[in-house]
Simulated scan of single mutants.
Amino acid sequence: MRQAIHHLSVQARGRGLVEFTDDARRFVDDTGIRTGLLTLFCRHTSASLLIQENADASVRRDLERYFETLAPEDAARYEHDTEGSDDMPAHLRTALTQVQLCVPVEHGRMVLGTWQGLYLFEHRRDPQRRDIVLHLLGQ
């Protein structure tokens, strides 16, 4: 068994989805590991990770609008506002999604579906730089 780890820095312009599939693909390629499991972990409480369709941008826009209705910015609803009015809604959106993903690796490639991509889902309004840890275990 071999393993490799990498910290990937992803820049988000603000709220929304940022695809990083190609960055993860390069990491897997560079390791030389042919069969294994790639774990991705977002080290933040106001951003999350998704595997989502990467062919039609309207899917991403609809997701963003839906989460705005689930956890709206509304100062009257929340006690926690330490980092601004978008702080608590960002935490709620993260709690409703996930900060960790696992993707199988077979024949040296991530086993994603035809239209699947890896996304950072940024939940804060302002630009953010996010750290995603990629850990590949295999042979």
Rank of each mutant, 00 (worst) to 15 (best):
R2I: 02
R2G: 13
Q3N: 06
A4I: 13
I5D: 10
I5K: 15
H7G: 07
S9E: 14
S9C: 12
Q11M: 14
A12V: 00
R15D: 00
D23S: 08
A24L: 09
R25Q: 02
R25H: 02
D29Q: 13
G32N: 14
I33N: 08
T35G: 12
T35S: 15
G36S: 08
T39I: 06
T39D: 11
T39G: 12
R43I: 01
H44A: 11
S46A: 15
S46F: 02
A47Q: 14
S48A: 12
L49S: 06
L50M: 10
L50S: 08
L50T: 03
I51H: 01
Q52T: 02
N54Y: 06
A55K: 08
D56H: 04
V59E: 09
R60W: 12
R61Q: 09
L63C: 15
L63F: 09
E64S: 08
R65Q: 07
R65G: 05
F67T: 00
F67W: 11
E68Q: 04
L70W: 13
P72M: 07
A75R: 13
A75L: 06
R77C: 01
Y78I: 03
Y78C: 00
E79W: 00
E79V: 05
D81H: 02
D86A: 01
D87G: 03
M88F: 07
M88A: 10
A90I: 02
H91R: 13
R93S: 02
A95I: 03
A95W: 04
L96N: 07
T97N: 14
Q98I: 03
Q98M: 09
Q98F: 05
V99D: 12
Q100G: 05
L101F: 12
V103R: 05
P104Y: 11
P104W: 08
V105W: 11
E106I: 12
H107G: 14
H107N: 15
R109I: 03
M110E: 08
M110F: 10
M110P: 03
M110Y: 06
M110R: 06
V111P: 01
V111H: 04
G113I: 13
G113Y: 13
W115F: 15
W115V: 03
W115Y: 13
G117F: 03
Y119P: 00
L120E: 14
L120I: 06
F121L: 13
F121Q: 00
E122A: 11
R125V: 00
R125S: 08
R125K: 10
D126V: 03
P127Y: 07
Q128E: 11
R129Q: 10
I132P: 08
I132W: 06
L134I: 02
L137R: 14
Q139S: 04
